[in-house]
Amino acid sequence: MSAFLNDAAVFLQVVAQLGTHILLGTLGGILCEKVGNLNLGIEGIMLLGASSGFFACIATGNPLLAVLVSGLTGVAAALIYAFLTVSLRCNQVVIGLALTIFGTGLSSIIGSSIAGRALPGSVNAILGTKTIPVLSQIPILGKMLFQQSPFVPLAVILSILLYFYFNKTNPGLNARMVGHNPAAADASGIHVSAYKYVHILAGGFLMGIGGGFFSMVYAGRWQNELTAGAGWIAVALVIFSTWDPLKAIFGAYLFGAVRGLTFKLQSGIPIFGQKLVVSSSLLDMLPYLATILVLVLITLRRKPEYKPPKSLGDPYFREDR
């Protein structure tokens, strides 16, 4: 029994590691979409964050500075998106796709000098696994949160903070109004563009450090297109979690669990004396299938809190009111 408990604890520990960069990307996506901006550039922004952070880490040897660089690169990329979609009212879908193409390309070029290089040892000392005594001994859940890189609990705490922000604070509620009905928000004295900018840029920061976590902590190396579609999973999980930061934790860890199982299923799991082997590419379809299912379900349910922000994807321009 205790062996099983230990196995479960280790599995959950891996699940949290596999899910954390996705969680950060998803939270960034939620910030954007709550103010009505569909950002399909997450993959590009995460790649830029991953490569620039890795680059800064090798150049300066300072991991905390590197994380900051990842985040600020994300902000810079999000600024391009925000300026074009908010100020210049460009089509959000097209600009998002273009940002992903741009970010994928630029990250490969930034990364060409660091591909295959090892990180300085200071990274592990600061960003690597930290074991918190006592708490990490909690059965099953202890290792998941308290024997981890500081990024893992940080992402969870951020989710909780964002949940309170969007549900209990005035700026958070204003932001939702901007996403829901920008004209009404404007009429009630909310500065729509400012809200959009702040949330899109903050979202870019989270996507950037999500990429930084992935390259510097999880993978520990750089290669082209390192994130391998994590940004698209994040786009899917924003919907899967019905724009709720708390459910995003669940969604990201569920994804991590499927990923963790994939490793096991490829070698086969014995069931009733037979070996069950499931193709990993079929398992990889699951997040996308689940997202379509959720999209169908939320359109069937009448509850307004599950609905997407009403103005999602539409530009807002007060002169056109």
């Binding site: 074009l84 970010g103 390309g105 630029l106």
Partner: peptide, 19 residues
């Protein structure tokens, strides 16, 4: 030079033309 330079160029052109 990485062929990805073309991706960067694509992105920049789209940003400017749509802007």
């Amino acid at each position: 030079i990485s062929s990805k330079m073309a991706d960067v160029l694509q992105g920049v052109i789209i940003f400017f033309v749509l802007g």
